[in-house]
Design a binder for these strands. Structure first.
Lengths: 129, 129
DNA sequence: GTCTATGCTTTGCGTTACAAAGCAATTCAA
DNA sequence: TTGAATTGCTTTGTAACGCAAAGCATAGAC
């Protein structure tokens, strides 16, 4: 018999950390879009997130393919510009992701009172048989 | 005149998101180690973080090369086992990283009262001429 | 018309994460 | 003692990924 196959003993695995979201550039883009529900233009995003053109384009592509953002070309008199908006499901997934982030912050914060090194072994179950 | 060249206008860039830390597996490992100042064995880490052997080994290697953790082989009667501990500078860098994470959470949270879509344009400076 | 600037897209490359396979040390059975 | 099986990692191979440089097309200035 091997470990009785009980699964839940991986308190630090953070499985909810969606890889599509958990990437600096895309996290930047998505957070920008979360706080700007009316959408942001390509150029605005580029500036807000300090990304290069190619970089932003690639990440927007990934996000669109994964249905996290919607891209629209809007000709406003002059040349068409790309506007990005977060989708409903994108928003939902982002909030889930945030939940995990908060968990990380909480887990880590639980030890910030340095010095007392021995009193926080609670999270680790015995492990030895 | 064009935006007067003031630089700090990339509020969502999150430059402090250290790539070595900002990776699911390593974030798991580091958070585990933060909360276990006495160190954790290879096997314990593997379980806590739900990582495969090869995976954990590789990430520990990266973390050691970057001076975030220290690895020691300790022969405790039987075969030597590897114990990982977070270093002082690792702890410092992790805490810096946490600061940014908290900023992300705060930025995103500032919009969680959905519905009122128009009142949070403060973070974005005009941008249009 | 040509020239420059703007707004993206595409391409190419180095890096990386990941899993499968490998290997060495230990324990156990006979 | 000697195989076989388990444990504790390491190494290797590959596919995916991020990134920047180069490319391209449209718009406006002249």
């Amino acid at each position: 018999m091997k470990t009785t196959n009980s699964k839940p003993a991986a308190p630090f695995a953070y499985e909810g950390l969606d890889r599509v979201i958990h990437e600096r550039a895309r996290l930047s883009v998505l957070t920008s879009l979360m706080t700007h529900p009316n959408g942001l233009s390509f150029v605005e995003l580029k500036q807000l997130c300090a990304l290069t053109d190619g970089n932003l384009a690639r990440h927007l592509q990934v996000l669109e393919e994964d249905n996290m953002v919607r891209l629209t070309k809007e000709a406003d008199g002059g040349r068409a510009q790309t506007t990005a908006r977060i989708t409903a499901s994108g928003r939902r997934r982002y909030l889930e992701y945030l939940t995990i982030l908060e968990q990380v912050v909480r887990d880590a914060a639980s030890v910030n009172h340095e010095g007392e090194e021995n009193q926080l072994r609670r999270k680790l179950t015995p492990l030895n048989t």
